[in-house]
Write a protein that binds this DNA or RNA. Sequence first.
DNA 1: AGTATTATTTGACCTAAGTCAAATGAATAC
DNA 2: GTATTCATTTGACTTAGGTCAAATAATACT
Lengths: 191, 191
Amino acid sequence: MIPVISYLDKIHSFIESLDHETLSALQNISIEKSYPKGYFLLKQNEICDKSYWIKNGVARKYYLNDGKEITTELYFDNDLAVSFDSYTLQHPSRECIETVTNVTVSIIPYQKFQEAKSNYPALLTLDLMLAEYYAMWLENRLFQFYTQSATERYLDILHKSPHIIQSIPLSVIASYLGISLETLSRIRARI
Amino acid sequence: MIPVISYLDKIHSFIESLDHETLSALQNISIEKSYPKGYFLLKQNEICDKSYWIKNGVARKYYLNDGKEITTELYFDNDLAVSFDSYTLQHPSRECIETVTNVTVSIIPYQKFQEAKSNYPALLTLDLMLAEYYAMWLENRLFQFYTQSATERYLDILHKSPHIIQSIPLSVIASYLGISLETLSRIRARI
DNA sequence: AGTATTATTTGACCTAAGTCAAATGAATAC
DNA sequence: GTATTCATTTGACTTAGGTCAAATAATACT
């Protein structure tokens, strides 16, 4: 597996090493808010015109496919939650983003960030790093679907991200693994 | 399906609208070359230190998983061929890139492009657009695996990208669709 | 505590796609 | 033109995971 995590570390250090002006420009356009469990940060068909930095709590992104939820991403502390294509193209989102627990987020509006990017070039580099990170994360996720069975994918989460198993209902984990709830239950019974 | 193609058009117009200096800087670091069918532009475990713009011909990116090829991307005229994570992190590639026909490519070395980015800020924006495009392309590919059967994925290619069926052997198409050659053959017999 | 509600497990059966092996067809070499 | 190799199809059988329905847990509610 590609060391994408270390790239995430690199991004966080990059943010911390930003010059004071850039950092406070970022601060100035951020708003901190809290939401209860089950709140929709983004609804389907809305345009994702904000990015959410999770300060505390858990959220997930998903869409419906013939009535069945497909969870595409799980968010924990320090993760960045957006519907990428909706945010990038500023068109309606096929995905929604819902809080799984109470969460506190730092919100940056799309427009403000675009303006800030043109005034503070380091933010353009940051944006590039974030897009690169997301692309590599997606590559890894595809890689897992290509090469691993459902059981292997579950064991992977169990070993590498046990906090997921703790904080998230099995129905959501199943939809994140791309399998039915029943199959997940059988996998758990077997191992 | 997300209108990712139109974003590709936007990228191409962006390139054409670059100021003369940036454009010629780009030109100066590009080298045009031709390779025969079956040539490896990138081998597994090599670091992808060049990007290949396909001028003419067909290429593909794939990796081996217990002896079985998994084709992750197909490249046609005007496409950009790189092993994204290897290029971004400058570490060994799990994928290789092989020409499917004779190809002519325009090659830009990684290092030169990095330098050019710091001298010509528009290239940073270009780099961001390319990463965004790739991330959205990956999202769509995952979306297809989540929501469509093998038959639907094949029909999709047949209708939207018939040039793929024309120019590429079925064994490669099967591995691109994530199914066995035999299954693809049966799908074709059925429809 | 006792009931309603939600989460999880188990059972029986089904289906898409995989595997292995053999057969046919197409293309290239000699 | 025939042989050799490569590409594609067909057959028989297996399997991972899905579906629908029912049975338990586990929580929450009054």
